[in-house]
Nucleic acid binder design. Structure first.
Lengths: 109, 109
DNA sequence: TTTATTGTTCGCAAATGTACGAACATTGAT
DNA sequence: ATCAATGTTCGTACATTTGCGAACAATAAA
């Protein structure tokens, strides 16, 4: 049974780069891990576990939002954040495909 | 049977952020995809398929090298590049763990 | 209406990233 | 020894990222 490597379309390549960019900072990874561990996840809860100004936290959240990895909805006067299911799955799949482009069997180098 | 989510250590979080940073540019994704599709992969071959100055290509390769995703060895006067197997697998595992921290079952948000 | 709470946005400064051409280093060929 | 071919490194310019505090907006409570 031959292993079939899925091709990545150009669009997928750009998209995975975009997701990677959102993941390219330890604080943002930490935010995602924290979000995944919580059911309720207000901005304040996130801010409480991070050693930085709230404006900075807000900005990291904005980048994760813009990349589509999280959602934030207002529950006045608070904002509830959570992981964006569908896009999270998309990202999972894209990274999985990316790492599958190389299966090191029988190569010279 | 309860599903067990693996924890990501702090170190792993920093490491995955580091890998993500290396992946955070379309050109670098393209380089990796190209490398994975080739058996022989000299600098020139890579440069040929990219619409940019060789110094720029060289710099992207340097970042991929510094992140550990590729290796380059001199075969004078050329340089043969290839994907770094072990680190590639490490990265694959780290991203897999990262995306597994969230399994969207039964959440509010 | 005033006040307190919660986050976002703005303006700034410092650091990092991206891209280019020129200069350089290394090796193979003449 | 000289020359051509192959990549890397350097210097420069411009854009983006990161972080902070101050100012702002929106809502709930008094």
């Amino acid at each position: 049974m031959e292993k079939v490597k899925e091709k990545m379309s150009i669009t997928d390549q750009e998209l995975v780069a975009r997701f990677a960019k959102a993941l390219a900072h330890p604080t943002r990874i930490e935010i995602l891990v924290f979000l995944a561990s919580q059911d309720s996840c207000f901005f304040g809860d996130i801010h409480d576990v991070l050693p930085m100004a709230k404006s900075t936290v807000s900005q990291h959240l904005k980048e994760l939002r813009d990349a589509g990895l999280i959602k934030g909805e207002i529950e006045a006067p608070k904002v509830r954040y959570c992981i964006h299911r569908e896009n999270w799955d998309t990202a999972r799949r894209l990274f999985s495909n990316l790492f599958d482009i190389f299966d090191g069997d029988g190569l010279v180098c």
